[in-house]
Amino acid sequence: MIKLNNITKVYRTKTIETTALNDIDLHVPKGEFLSIMGPSGCGKSTLLNIIGLLDEPSGGTIRVDGQEVIKYASKATAKFRNEKLGFIFQSFHLIPDLNVIDNVELPLLYRNVSRKDRKEMAAIALESVGLANRKSHFPSQLSGGQKQRVAIARAIVGNPAIILADEPTGNLDSVMGDEVMEILTKLNKEEGTTIVMVTHDERMAKKTDRLIRLYDGSQVA
């Protein structure tokens, strides 16, 4: 589904050059729940961003469904992100000025979906994460766990084939973290959604199909 070949990412300033990723080869097949672990600053999030086409690699190629991604700022890439990818962030990234249902329907705004269908699809997504009764609440009125569940609803509302989750349980206590993991696992098993998750938590990583480890920008396991 997504194939990374010799991916490198180098951050350059006038005086210093930092290699964040070094020759990463990765193949994420359809339906896999992959977790990426490693110490802080090892390049986990950078790799996830590159998989999600949110960041451009310094070298190497990315193939999505057999096609090489060249223009990252193009409409086609935006369309691909919209239709094929869903993102879950550690700090939720909900828009504070929008209520829960408007936050959830966000990806559908960029598709040709009628207002009525958007509301229906968002309501179904919210129901699947157990927040059907919080539609009109604003993010500031929700707990951390609830915010992350809203973020999951937003990620799945457009039925993407791949979910990319950057430490989705990082800001949550263990109970809420387990709840979020349960939703993700169910999504993977029942819907066949491919999930790539960055985590610090060994316990969470063990619940996934495959674990890769990064160290100083290189894959070590």
């Binding site: 935006a78 992100r81 919209n82 990234h93 828009i95 990806p107 705004l109």
Partner: peptide
């Protein structure tokens, strides 16, 4: 800016 980031991540292009 982070709202812009989120919107773009979920499929908004420059014109949107």
């Amino acid at each position: 800016s982070s709202e812009i980031g989120v919107r773009k991540a979920f499929g908004a292009h420059q014109g949107n």
